[in-house]
Simulated assay, not measured.
Amino acid sequence: MEILSAFLEHVRQQRRLADNTVEAYGHDLRRFFGFLEEHLGQEVAIKIFRHLHASDIRAFLASRRREGLSDASIARVLSAIKTFYHWLDNHHGIENPEIAFLQGPKRGARLPRPVSIAAARDMIETADAFAEEPWVAARDAAVLTLLYGGGLRISEALGLNGDAVPAPERLRITGKGGKTRIVPLIPAVRQAMGEYARLCPYPLTKETPFFYGVRGKRLQAAIVQKNVQVLRGALGLPETATPHALRHAFATHLLSHGADLRAIQTLLGHASLSTTQVYTGVDSERLRAVHKAAHPRA
């Protein structure tokens, strides 16, 4: 159909969508057009799109659901249809207000994927194994220790200035939205930070970074992520073992050891308790796995 070819050419050339996305749009819309021909009993022409009802789109989505499509796939199909209609409106003056109000299935919140206690320990203990200089080794270990032991975001850790030494018992952190919180530092974190500070060849003052890259500039998140990627390969950990997974681990391991959810919210700097509550889902999944593995009747 010429109109479909023109639309796909537009999203490929003008919107510069990825080839896989364009291919998925084409597949979904061909299925949509085929459904309409059968559903309406007529050949699909551009004029019919002005008069389609939301119920027609829902009937198509229901047919795809019966074929076994997941919520995510249904949402993708609806996105393709809405993008097509947006193009029809802009390029052919075909407007259909009913389509704009269609909503896809609500997708459940994706649970955080923390590393295990053993994996967190192994990552921290092995962090210094691939550095060529002692101060870089101490730096890498200190960064990961701070993420896991303090629950910091990687941007928060790398945003610290040199006046973070000597490491205090309570560290003031400015997080998202400029919100400030106080993070207690356990002895292991303070020790790791102190060892790095002792070996660091660059000045550490309130005007300088605390974590340096090898060229004397503030350490970048991409370097930490690359180092963790190497660690994953060395330790045989999954791709979900990222720097941010250490922050997730901080929260879930506190929760599993009896910490109060409100306290964890404060430590993480979450504005809403509902954001922190996702970790209860992680802990529930862990408990179910333990029950299934240990119960004699499971």
Rank of each mutant, 00 (worst) to 15 (best):
Y85D: 02
W135T: 12
K47L: 05
T126Y: 10
D28P: 08
R30E: 14
A75H: 07
I74G: 07
L78A: 03
F84K: 08
G151A: 09
E43P: 00
V115M: 09
D28G: 03
A54W: 02
E95D: 13
R50L: 09
A142Q: 12
E37M: 01
D122S: 15
E98K: 10
E43C: 00
A75T: 06
E67K: 13
L40F: 12
T21E: 04
R15N: 05
S155P: 03
Q103Y: 00
E67R: 14
T83D: 07
T145E: 15
E37L: 03
D128G: 15
L152D: 08
L158N: 08
I74L: 15
S55F: 05
G34Y: 06
H92Y: 14
L61C: 00
D71E: 09
A137W: 11
A45Y: 06
K106I: 05
A120H: 14
A80W: 10
A120W: 09
A157I: 08
H51L: 10
A131Y: 07
H86C: 01
V143G: 13
P134A: 11
E67G: 12
D56W: 01
A138C: 03
H92L: 09
A137G: 15
L36R: 11
F84A: 01
F60A: 04
S70L: 04
A131M: 10
R121A: 12
A75E: 05
R31S: 13
A157P: 09
S55E: 14
